Simulated assay, not measured.
Amino acid sequence: MPKSLVSGGTGYVGRFIVDALIARGHEVTVLSRREPRADLFIAPIHFMTGELDPGRDQSHAFQGMDLFVHAAFDHLPGLYRGGEGDDPASFRTRNVDGSKALFDAARKAGVGRAVFLSSRAVYGTQPPGARLSEETRPHPDTLYGEAKHAVERHLREIGSTEAFAGTSLRVTGVYGPAGRGKPDDKWTPIIRDWLDGRAVEPRAGSEVHGADVAGAVLAILDAPASAVAGQIFNVSDVMVDRTDMLAIVQQATGHSTPLPQPADSSRINVMETDRIEALGWRPGGVKRLRDTVLDLVDKLEPARSR
């Protein structure tokens, strides 16, 4: 049975990855600051206390592991861009130096594969409407994007061999249900505002379901190490306008609240995903988007009627 360590496995995206690895037959250990509730995942996991601290020896966590997925990121609650608050130096130390230390420990312990959850924020400001491939030159314009880019570069430097194959996934905005006992997902508050007649600001952007992010991790594992070592892959799926998302809600509920005006999506930079699709990755597309929104409505409406 393969053994996998997932940092940040209790987080919004990490939970999907843990469940996917369990379903694949992996024995999963979650590295996190706090032990998760017992029913957060689809089956029991092992737990180790850990954090993004470059001065802390966490080598014991990697002993006997075949895979390390680094999904942890230390930031102010609810913020990624701007998540450093008024302490950018500590933010950089934790998320850059702390991440580098974990990858170094993984390689030293003999872990064969490592996957880093990076971000489309690495691309930063690009020409309006330009498509983003993995060859697009990064221009991170936030500390969040800079931190992700710095860790990508380190993993490429140390993880470009078949003995330690390191891969970075540049992930766009992630949607999907929140885990048990977790706060609202990103869309339920918007749906609730619209149902209650409050104004919803027009907005559009690229999205990918958390389960499809997990599917990207599995696609990397299924590929030969030589094909993914030191490589970067975009992970994105559908362009979502809040107007279109709320139109699904309107159709399901029959609410007559006017929809917000569509956002201007002509300037959005769409991420090309041909590279990871060549590994067999297939996201859920519009169907998964619609099914997810309908599930959120089903969960929200009984709570509103109580």
Rank of each mutant, 00 (worst) to 15 (best):
R156F: 01
L221A: 02
L195C: 11
M48L: 15
V228D: 11
D19C: 11
P183A: 07
Q126F: 02
E157R: 12
T167L: 05
D66R: 02
H60S: 13
R306C: 02
R131F: 00
K287Q: 15
A20C: 03
A106L: 04
P128V: 04
I220K: 13
L31Y: 02
D86M: 01
Q251P: 03
V228L: 09
D57L: 11
V213P: 14
Y123G: 11
E207P: 00
D57T: 10
Q58A: 13
P224K: 14
D57V: 06
N234P: 11
V217W: 03
I232V: 15
H26T: 01
I42S: 15
V235M: 04
A105V: 02
A109C: 07
T136H: 08
R170D: 03
S32C: 03
V18A: 09
D87L: 08
V13A: 09
A214H: 13
V6L: 03
G98L: 05
T292Y: 11
E27Q: 09
A223H: 09
G159H: 05
Y12P: 09
E134P: 14
V286L: 01
L155R: 14
V270N: 03
E152Q: 15
A199C: 01
G85S: 01
A130G: 00
F116R: 07
L21D: 14
L117I: 12
P260E: 05
P138S: 01
L117Q: 12
R290E: 15
G25W: 04
A204P: 04
A303Y: 03
G176E: 04
